[in-house]
Design a protein around this nucleic acid. Structure first.
Lengths: 104, 104
DNA sequence: AACATACATCGATAATTCCCGATATACCTA
DNA sequence: TAGGTATATCGGGAATTATCGATGTATGTT
């Protein structure tokens, strides 16, 4: 097989406008989340579920599920700190997918 | 919007293992289609539906539909010659998508 | 312990997608 | 024109996805 089956799942994850939107928001948190604040000192762990939820207009459960989908296929990382879970783009996966398109 | 809505449709098209497989087959027709023969002299127009159908194990109608999906989102070109329709990868779209991943 | 907050999971319904068989359409040949 | 071949389209059942409200679980506060 030329394209690992996993890549199909990544494309499925990207084939939803809300999930794709979330991924673009996470590209530039300062711009997209008014009350965004780096959570962990100098280490940037991303944006917490609640912020994304409030911006999205979808329900909390849907956003939680979508973030878990993005996480499962490796498009974002997840960091639990206290009662918050912070999600952050996984640029390696995204870049790898960009390269994959060239060799696909 | 940062990502054009159309790109979501492209990701949906790629989010199916059979369609993704077809796209990889079309990358190298000589290798994947035993009885492949350039149809149009020196201009390569791609592979006809029947060849893809026979290799796929899916029904003719399904393959025709899948090729039409890939065509609608711009991932392949379609050239009708006589009673055959030849499909060929649209490398521009694929390359553009690769670049998009970097700016996504 | 009791309660509040943040997130995840469950259960359900509507919408979409997958893939099929049947049929229609286009083209070619005799 | 009649018949054959290649592809496209239609209609549908099963499977998957989208999205919700309700509930569960972990953590923090008093």
């Amino acid at each position: 097989m030329f394209v690992p089956m996993d890549d199909v799942e990544i494309f499925k994850a990207l084939g939803n406008k809300n999930r794709l939107q979330i991924l673009t928001w996470l590209k530039d948190p300062e711009q997209h989340f008014i009350d965004y604040m780096p959570a962990c000192g100098d280490i940037d762990v991303g944006v917490c579920v609640g912020h994304i939820h409030k911006k999205s207009g979808l329900t909390q459960s849907t956003i939680s599920e979508y973030l878990s989908v993005l996480h499962r296929v490796g498009l974002v990382s997840a960091t639990r700190i206290g009662q918050w879970t912070y999600y952050k783009r996984n640029e390696e996966t995204i870049a790898r997918l960009g390269n994959l398109m060239n060799t696909l």
